[in-house]
Computed example of a mutant assay.
Amino acid sequence: MRVLELYSGIGGMHYALRESGITAKVVAAIDINPNANDVYRHNFPDTVLMNRNIQSIDAEELEKLDVDTILMSPPCQPFTRLGLKKDALDNRACSLLHILSLIPNLRNLKYILLENVKGFEISEMRDKLIHCMESCGYAYRELILSPCQFGIPNSRLRYYLLAKRNNLKFCFKQPSLDNCLSSELLKSLPQSRHSVLAKKNGKINPKSDRICYTLDNILENTEESRYLIPSKFLQKRAWVLDIRTSESAGSCCFTKGYGHYAEGTGSVYCPFTDETIRLKYSEADNHKNNSDKQVQILSDLKLRFFSPKEVYRLMCFPENFDFPKHITDRQKYKLLGNSINVHVVSRLMLLLHNENENI
């Protein structure tokens, strides 16, 4: 496979391709974010990386690259539940519209994998995408999946499109958009360290009803004070924090605002038990009219943000992944929040590439 990685970010698709084991070469990666490009170049120094606006690329240029596969994770802001949901009218959707206009002219293109936020599946842009696939002679599958369905203790519900030329067969049938992979399909995939770890010491994740490994497997020995929740956060947001312990089998989706905003951006960690957390919060609740006293009590829990390394472990980046020294923690969280779950996408690449009609 000769692969073009669009919206390449920090290289999640590239790592997923490596994890899949499929024989492939990323002939070019394209992104316009300078910080993301610094991280990508740091980890993939031998890959051609273009710092460009995707709308500046034409079909002739892509034809010269002779790619047969496009991997992409376009901006999700036009479709996210927290955004304005301007959909195809959002300026950030223009680059995807441009790509759709190029696809009819890419004669060697065989495979397409697209990832986006939950909500994309009900958008006008999704309809344009599907129209492009059908009119250009591609068969496709649509899925909405989360890492916790694969034994990973993190919820990150995402839309995926797998498409291939009509003359290439899919290994599984699908009547419509599906919210999970069948157990038979999951069993057909190679065992991974994630599934092995989940079977070895996992617990039921209540959101997915699947067994996931616990968070003690992703924790690092980190300087406690560096990531502690500030007192002002505790004062204003202590009651809406999603608190997890080392024995938790799940965590919330980490977004680009993690570490800067406390609510709705991801889980936080506590080194004590769920029972200790419950008792401390109960004690703090007895001082409703004294916020300073509440903060004093809750500070004993040593609540902290998950470190960037812990977040990228939950997103299944390999241990040799690294950030350049000049990238700040806030930039790391932002870049990770815009990235993909490497393991989930690696499994989908295998399904896209497989043509054995046995499921």
Rank of each mutant, 00 (worst) to 15 (best):
G266K: 02
S267T: 11
S267G: 10
S267R: 02
V268L: 12
C270F: 12
C270V: 09
P271V: 02
F272T: 04
F272I: 08
F272R: 00
D274S: 13
E275S: 12
E275Q: 15
T276I: 12
I277F: 08
R278K: 15
R278A: 14
K280S: 14
K280D: 05
K280R: 12
Y281F: 15
D285K: 11
D285M: 08
D285R: 07
H287G: 00
H287M: 00
K288V: 02
N289V: 00
N289E: 08
N290I: 04
K293I: 05
Q294P: 04
V295I: 07
V295K: 11
Q296D: 09
L298S: 06
L298V: 05
L298M: 03
D300H: 13
L301W: 13
L301D: 06
L301I: 06
L303V: 05
R304I: 01
S307Y: 04
K309V: 15
K309P: 00
K309N: 08
E310V: 07
V311G: 02
V311F: 06
R313A: 13
R313N: 13
L314T: 02
L314R: 07
L314E: 06
M315Q: 15
M315G: 03
M315C: 01
C316E: 11
C316H: 05
P318A: 09
P318F: 07
N320V: 08
N320I: 03
F321G: 04
F321V: 01
D322L: 04
F323W: 14
F323I: 07
K325F: 09
K325V: 15
